[in-house]
């Protein structure tokens, strides 16, 4: 999750990095110029787009905000950060992010401003530098405490006494979980399982010519009530044409428990559309017997595919039912 600059700077101040004196426009503050008004948008290149503007006297701030607003277009803006100018002698650039190939944190430092030339790029674990060593340690500790995925300060201003002040902050918090649910435009309700299989299944449905009503992924052995609630949300969308419960050949998911919760949600939603399952793994025999008996008793068109019918074949069978 990306933080707006104002939130990023609040976080930097909290972990011990200096930032300019500033406030969000509308907050009570006493202020003397000169300084900058900065639109709080999650977009790079704000300076060039006129979304950051300088003022000499505080009286100019309201006018500048009106001017910036006229340049925002459709950008979502979470307020205006008003900051006092921070005198400095030099500008740098610093970022710390994950080097996935190395599986470790990487720090990049260069002379800053609009056109950045990177001077250092190395793993944090082996980073040693008289000038930047302490700052990198402070930033890294803060990143761990606040579960940050990446951090970029550009410009990082160096004051005459050699200390640093962060003039901007692009901070991304770690996504602590995956996106579990997205609504889409189609008419086939999906309850997918497995981090990898959910992608394979969605690919298969599209290849078979189906249109997904949603992307929902449930992994491992979630609580049956969580499964039921999630499925009910999926099944409550109007004008659905079919349900597809699809996943991999599970290693340790209790398939019978999962199907029982999904059937309960289908009943609660009052559906009668085709119900197609493609699951295998622990207790899949029981899941299959129970699901087929349930469908027969309720006259629900139903297919229950096991591992010998792959996800692509199951998706095709589902489409041919429609």
């Amino acid at each position: 999750m990306k933080l707006i600059e104002a939130d990023g700077k609040r976080l930097l101040r909290e972990i011990g990095v200096a930032v300019p004196v500033g406030f969000l426009f509308g907050e009570p503050a006493t202020f003397s110029g000169p300084g900058y008004v900065k639109a709080q948008v999650l977009k790079g290149g704000r300076g060039k787009a006129g979304l950051v503007q300088r003022f000499e006297k505080p009286e100019e701030i309201s006018g500048i905000i009106e001017n910036i607003k006229s340049k925002l277009g459709t950008l979502s803006c979470e307020g205006f950060l008003v900051e006092e100018e921070a005198p400095h002698v030099k500008q740098w650039f610093i970022s710390i992010d994950l080097d996935r190939a190395a599986g470790d944190w990487r720090v990049n430092i260069g002379e800053g401003g609009m056109d950045v030339a990177t001077a250092h790029s190395q793993l944090v674990a082996s980073f040693q530098d008289e000038k930047f060593g302490t700052l990198v340690r402070v930033l890294m500790d803060g990143m761990r405490t606040h579960r940050l995925q990446s951090l970029e300060i550009n410009p990082l201003a160096e004051r005459a006494d050699g200390s640093f002040v962060a003039l901007d902050a692009k901070i991304v918090k770690e996504d602590e979980s995956t996106v579990s649910s997205v609504e889409l435009d189609g008419d086939i309700a999906l309850v997918l399982s497995g981090g990898g299989a959910s992608l394979v299944a969605l690919d298969a449905l599209i290849a078979a010519g189906g249109k997904a009503a949603n992307f929902v992924e449930l992994s491992g052995n979630p609580d049956p009530e969580v499964i039921r609630q999630t499925a009910l949300r999926v099944f409550s969308k109007p004008d659905l044409k079919a349900v597809w419960v699809a996943g991999s050949y599970a290693n340790f998911t209790d398939i019978a428990a999962m199907l029982s919760a999904i059937r309960a949600a289908y009943d609660d939603a009052g559906l009668s559309i085709p119900f197609v399952v493609r699951r295998d793994g622990p207790n899949a025999d029981q899941a299959q017997t129970e699901t087929l008996a349930w469908a027969e008793a309720k006259h629900i068109p139903c297919l229950f595919h096991r591992a010998d019918i792959d996800l692509e074949a199951s998706a095709k069978a589902l489409i041919s039912l429609l």
Binding site: D175, S177, T178, V179, V182, L184, G194, G195, G196, S198, L199, V200, L202, D203, L205, I206, A212, F215, E217, S219
Partner: peptide
């Protein structure tokens, strides 16, 4: 896999 990611917003984690 993942041609289906074209349907979903980028820059976010799906599945894993």
């Amino acid at each position: 896999p993942g041609a289906a990611l074209d349907l979903l917003p980028r820059g976010l984690p799906y599945g894993h």
